[in-house]
Each structure stands twice: as structure tokens, then as C-alpha cells.
Simulated assay, not measured.
Amino acid sequence: MQKILFPAVLAALALSLHPSAALAYIGPGVGAGAIAAVLGVIGSIFLAIVGVLYYPIKRLLKGRKSKTAKSSGGSKPAA
């Protein structure tokens, strides 16, 4: 079985690496739409990562500031 499979895989690999002309045209509208879709996916992944990391850090820093304000007196002097 392996003696038959190896030449078939080797032939498929050789044929897939052989370049040939696509003879296709992508108009400017389809190209711009494809670029916009790719940038949208990348942007949404980036914003998801920022959202997951930003809010816990913001909450941690806010909690640390409020503890510092409470320990230093925190009340306004009477005017």
C-alpha cells in the first residue's frame, strides 16, 4: 500500500508546485472588498485582545488609586 501511495503523493506534490497562469481578473471593487474584509477581521481580533487586556488593567489601576486616596485622607479641606 505504501509503495503505491508514495509515488501518488510525490506526483501530486510535483503537480501542485508547477506554476500555471490563472487567467483570471479581479476588478477593483472585488479587490477593495477583499482587502476591507481582511482588515476588518484583523481589526476585530486586535480590538478583542485590547478589550480583554485593557479593562482589567484599568480596574486594577482605579482600585489602587482609590486605596491611595483613602489612606492619605482623601477629604477636601473646608473652604
Rank of each mutant, 00 (worst) to 15 (best):
K58P: 01
L47K: 11
L39C: 09
A21V: 03
S75N: 06
I42G: 04
S71K: 06
P56Y: 03
A21C: 05
S44T: 06
G40P: 01
K67A: 15
G40I: 00
V52I: 13
V30S: 14
A22Q: 12
A11R: 05
A22L: 12
G51A: 01
T68I: 11
L17I: 02
A14G: 08
G33Y: 01
L5N: 10
A11V: 06
K62H: 07
I49P: 01
I57N: 04
V52L: 11
I26A: 11
I57G: 00
P28C: 02
F6R: 12
L5T: 13
A36I: 02
S75W: 09
L23W: 06
G51N: 10
I26E: 13
G63P: 00
P19E: 04
L61E: 05
L47G: 02
G51C: 01
S72C: 04
S44D: 14
K62R: 12
K70Y: 08
A48S: 09
L13W: 07
L23C: 09
I49N: 04
P56N: 02
V38R: 13
K62P: 00
A78F: 07
A37N: 07
K76S: 09
I49T: 06
V38Q: 13
Y25Q: 13
Y54N: 06
V50S: 08
V9K: 09
L39M: 11
A22W: 06
L47E: 13
A14P: 02
A12K: 05
F46K: 11
I42A: 15
I26G: 05
Q2A: 13
